[in-house]
Amino acid sequence: MKFRTFAAFVGPSLLLMFLFIAAPLASVLWQSFHITKPVFETVSVETCTPGFPSQICTTEERTIPQLEDGKVVTRTDYVGWQSYRNVLEPDRAAAAIERGSWSDLMTIDFWKALRFTLTFTLITLPLAIGLGLLIALAVNNALKQVRGPVIFVSLLPFIITPVIGALSIKWLFIGDGIMTAMLERWLQQDIAMFAQGWTIEILMLFYRVWHVAPFAFVIFYAGLQSVNQDTLESAIIDGASRFERLRYVIVPHLMPLIVFVSMIHLMDAYRCFEEVIGFSSQAHRISLQFLTFDLMTPDDSGNRSISRASASAMLTMIGIALLLIPLVRKTWRDHKGSSA
C-alpha cells in the first residue's frame, strides 16, 4: 500500500485522536503550571446615609472583580509547581509521616485516593482472574444445552451500565435492605453498611470482581476450547492427577490470556470511578480519577479548579505510564520477533 493511500485511510481517525486525545494532554500539562484567576481591583466606595445635621459618609475599600464590556477580566499566570503542591500537600504529608500517623496522612485527599486506588486494583486482580477461571472451567464441564443460557446470564454484570450495576448492589444493602437484614439475623448485631469506610470498600471490591469476572470468563472459556487433547491424555498416562493437569497443562496454555486479562484489568481498575458515584462513597473512599472529576465539578460558588484538576490528572498519569512500560516493551519485542 502506498503511503498516500495509507494516509487517506488512516487520516480521519488520526486527526480525531490528535485533536481530542493528544492535544488535550498537552493542554493539561500546560494548565497544571498555570492558574487563571479573575483580576481584582481595589476601589474606594463612599456610602452615605442621611443623618442630622449632615449626612454620615463612610469610605471603605472594596475588592471587586474588574469588568470589561460586562465580562470579568481574567489573567493567567505561571505558577510553577504550586498546583502540584496544592494537590500533594507535601508539608502536611511529611509532618504526618514524621509523626508516623497513618490516619493523618489519610486526611489528605490525594494520598487517600492513591491508597484506595492501589489496594483496589491489586486486590481485585487475583479475585477477578480466579473467579473467571473457575467459571470457565465449570461452564466447560457443563452440558452443551445449558452453556448458552449460562453465558447469557454471565454477560449481564459485564454489560450493564457500571453506575447502575454498583447501584443495584447498593440497594440490596441500603438501610434495612434484604441483604443487611439477612446479615443482621445471622450475626445477631446491628449493621449499617454505609456508615463506615471499610464496609463500603468491601462492597466496592465485590462490585468490581462481579463486573470483571464475566470478561475474564469469556476469554478463558475461548482459550479452553483450544487446549491440546493429546497433551492432556499424555499427562493422564504419566499419572497426573486432575489438579496437576490443571496446574501443568491448562494454566500454562491459558497464560498469554491471563496476562492479557490482567493488563486490561489493571488499566481499567486503576481508572476506577463509577464505584464512587454508584456507592456515593465520596465521604469515605475516593479514587484518583474521582479526585480529578471532583476538582473539575463546579463548587458552591461555581468555580472549577482546573489547574489543580490538571495537576492531579498529571499525577494519575504517572501510574498509567508505569503500567504501560512493560506492556509496550513486550509488544515491541513480539513485533520485532514476528517481522524478523
Partner: peptide
Amino acid sequence: SGSNLAFWLLIIALIFRALPHSVLVAGYLP
C-alpha cells in the same frame, strides 16, 4: 499495511486507550 509506521500508530493507540477519561476532560473543559 505492514509498515513500522502502522505498528507505531497502533502502539500509540494502545497508550491512548489506557488514559483515564478525566485526564482528557480536564484538557477539554477550559
